[in-house]
Design a protein around this nucleic acid. Sequence first.
DNA 1: TATATACTGAACCATATGGTTCAGTATCGA
DNA 2: TCGATACTGAACCATATGGTTCAGTATATA
Lengths: 121, 121
Amino acid sequence: MVQYRPAQLDFSFAALSDATRRGVLEQLSRADASITDLAGKFHMTLTGMKKHVAVLERAALVTTEKAGRVRTCRLAMRALEEEAAWIERHRQLWSARFDELDKIVEHLKSKEKPDARRKTR
Amino acid sequence: MVQYRPAQLDFSFAALSDATRRGVLEQLSRADASITDLAGKFHMTLTGMKKHVAVLERAALVTTEKAGRVRTCRLAMRALEEEAAWIERHRQLWSARFDELDKIVEHLKSKEKPDARRKTR
DNA sequence: TATATACTGAACCATATGGTTCAGTATCGA
DNA sequence: TCGATACTGAACCATATGGTTCAGTATATA
């Protein structure tokens, strides 16, 4: 039931492109935290941190829930599955392509061997 | 010898956060291409496509070389290794954390069983 | 040599991002 | 009930992004 709208990957890769937000994810992987906790840890105003958390929520990497005054942030269960899938798919495509190139290079090398030392560049 | 400056991940995740650029990577995984090729394929001006390619180069996902009039774009060999590593590391951290939560949930469930049907929410 | 091709760079535009401050509102605890 | 705490929202700011047009420069080609 996961929506594969292209925008989803846009949002999650964009969310991962900021070191503070990657830090927040790392932090949340250790323990849930409030906005105040996170703002303190990353030396930032509450408002600033709230924006980062909003970006992580939009990317569905984090969920939050407010109880009383405190909004608690936690990792989303599905976190990073889609992103890992995209990257893995492409790594495979590409390594296939590089294997091809390797073969071509090997082929060229074997043809060169007979009269080596022709053009170095 | 790969530089692990934090900015590198910033650049590569940012590069991946745009559907056009992901499309360009996909295209390049099939064959090298000139700026003109790519601009045509993605219905964009040369100048616009050149900017996207510049972003992919900054992220070290693509390399380019100019021969005569034509600049040829190709995938960088190292492409996506670092990004995949980051994501995998975190997927592991997080699944560990979710396993913990599962245990806690199981524990609570077993305690609840005696008098189930308490609070549905 | 003249023309077409392929790119490059500057300038511009609208919108997004990453941060702030300031002025609230809501809730907790003494 | 009063003060402190925790967040929220609006407004602002500088810079980045994703695109364009226009005016070049360099290279192929007829």
